[in-house]
């Protein structure tokens, strides 16, 4: 059973990891790009509390939060971000292209959706009992491959859960300029059971996540649309939003601030100290690891 403290631990871990990753960019230890999950932590905490250990996850460019909630090692993720040989995929993939156990990510919007649908079909064929979960954003709703996939998932009753995290901006483009009509109706039109929630409170999201996961596990596709807020820029410096708007959502919709009062302050301080040390160790160790070399036959 997932406790309030477990949920807090998960969200705090993600927050600390992402804050540290952004900070390391300014020190030059990270290169390339990164897409912080800050503000959306309740989505991952709720969904992964509802998922089982054998379920197969396909995430996108903003995958760190999902990976950490999945149980992934922050040290190996940090090493991957720093392009080290000890990284999750030996420095070959970087921030957006990682794999560990049943967790995969790729940086192509929409392209991961049919892949995850095929994964669900494979798990069904193998009768493994696992479901496939794929994370989309509001921006991904513009990609045609999504609609091809949900049509087939419904026709073939594939156990796949489509999670749309609507953080209201596709890079810099607000949903008002990119998404016509209803998000939920897109899935419903294909006969897919759809859940929807607009909250940064992990306890509001948890029962929604459980229902959607249970439905997919019962054998058919499900969709779960979570309206959330991204506090950080899309990647690093590309945030033309009004700072006042960001300040306001940080005050009103911070999943950690919402959830923290539910936990005993001593226990909370202890968990925070433990995670602070874990993150510091992860980044410090990773920074001293070797860079990979290319071995060509």
């Amino acid at each position: 059973m997932t406790t309030n403290l477990d949920l807090y631990r998960c969200m705090y871990l993600i927050r600390q990891f992402e804050e540290r990753a952004l900070a390391e960019f300014s020190t030059g230890k990270l290169f390339g790009t990164t897409h912080a999950y800050i503000g959306q932590e309740a989505d991952a905490a709720a969904l992964f509390a509802a998922l089982g250990p054998d379920d197969v996850i396909f995430s996108n460019h903003r995958c760190h939060g999902h990976f950490l909630a999945y149980g992934g090692d922050p040290y190996r993720l940090a090493a991957e971000l720093m392009g080290r040989a000890t990284g999750l995929v030996g420095g070959r993939g970087g921030s957006q292209h990682i794999h560990w156990r049943n967790f995969y990510s790729n940086g192509i919007q929409g392209g991961i959706v049919p892949v995850a649908t095929g994964i669900g079909l494979a798990e069904k064929a193998k009768a493994s009992g696992a479901i496939s979960v794929v994370f989309l954003g509001d921006g991904t709703l513009g990609e045609g491959a999504l609609y091809e996939s949900i049509n087939i998932a419904s026709l073939w009753q594939i156990p796949v859960l489509y999670v749309v995290e609507n953080n209201r901006y596709a890079q810099t483009t607000p949903t008002e300029l990119a998404v016509a009509g209803s998000m939920a109706d897109r899935f419903k039109a294909f006969g897919i059971e759809t859940w929807e929630a607009a909250s940064s409170d992990v306890l509001t999201l948890l029962p929604v996540a459980r229902e959607a996961v249970d439905h997919a596990r019962s054998g058919g596709p499900a969709a779960c649309i979570l309206h959330t807020y991204r506090f950080s820029a899309h990647s690093k410096g590309d945030d033309p939003r009004d700072p006042a708007e960001i300040a306001k959502i940080r005050v009103e919709h911070d999943p950690l601030t919402i959830h923290a009062p539910r936990i005993d302050s001593v226990a909370r301080a202890s968990v925070e100290a433990e995670i602070d040390a874990l993150i510091d160790d992860a980044f410090t160790r990773a920074a001293n690891d070797p860079f990979p070399t290319l071995n060509v036959e």
Binding site: A122, K126, N151
Partner: peptide, 25 residues
């Protein structure tokens, strides 16, 4: 033997997912 809608991107993507998880599409 699965007949599909006219959805080439999905056909290929579904095969990718099946192959990743141990099938041979």
């Amino acid at each position: 033997v699965l007949t599909t809608p006219i959805s080439e991107a999905a056909i290929m993507g579904i095969c990718n997912g099946m192959a990743l998880r141990g099938l041979r599409p």
